[in-house]
Design a protein around this nucleic acid. Sequence first.
DNA 1: TCTTCCGCTTACGTCAACGTCAAGCAAGAC
DNA 2: GTCTTGCTTGACGTTGACGTAAGCGGAAGA
Lengths: 123, 123
Amino acid sequence: MTWSISQLSREYGVTLRTLRHYEDLGLLAPERRGTTRLYHQRDRIRLALILRGKRLGFSLDEISVIVNMYDEQPGERGQLEFLMEQCDVRRAQLEQQRRDIDDTIAELEVVKARCREDLEKLS
Amino acid sequence: MTWSISQLSREYGVTLRTLRHYEDLGLLAPERRGTTRLYHQRDRIRLALILRGKRLGFSLDEISVIVNMYDEQPGERGQLEFLMEQCDVRRAQLEQQRRDIDDTIAELEVVKARCREDLEKLS
DNA sequence: TCTTCCGCTTACGTCAACGTCAAGCAAGAC
DNA sequence: GTCTTGCTTGACGTTGACGTAAGCGGAAGA
């Protein structure tokens, strides 16, 4: 099962340009039948990872690091230790982000409560 | 108690240019003593909100909307309802982000576990 | 055969979020 | 006085993440 560039584009809500751009950056590497791109399941998974990274506000460079972490081959000791370190760094960053999110949600609820009060005074 | 631009800059780890840029966009509005900027507590709070928004990956335009939500005056019914709606929209977005974070953290743990296994095989 | 879709590459354009000078003012140190 | 330090306002430069043509190729339908 493979997909064309426009099928993938429609399905994930991104433009053709975007998909080609990600390829230029080495984030995607679809098969080629002649010059035409053929996307496999592994490309879809990568794309999903990329888009999730974007929703989290990471740059494509950072995303590149992250998605490549998922399919590293075993490698040598130093590299493995570096990879684990990177995991921890990302994790710390993500947990900070989650705290930020919780704080923001809490504050939004305060704003809403104030709105409700003001609305009641108006009626 | 007030702060100069370079004090604020040092404290929050942003450049002078950035602070002036935020002012150009209407995100900050420090007092002026002559031409010199004087930042008050309210400016510090706003800056903290802005930076938190950035950590969450929002654009300065979006951040502008959010921080201005915090200090809207009561206003009329339509506006209040719109504001509450905006709160819900943001909240939904933030909750999606939290799910993304949790998924990513879980996957990072998988990567780390694989690393640990590979390391053990090496020793 | 002609046109109409895809799809391809090349390349310049754009927008956000600043970076990076340049040039100038004002106040305190020497 | 002048030198340094800190602040100011332009204004052009840069980087990331694409947008937007322009121009071409191949397959498929009228």
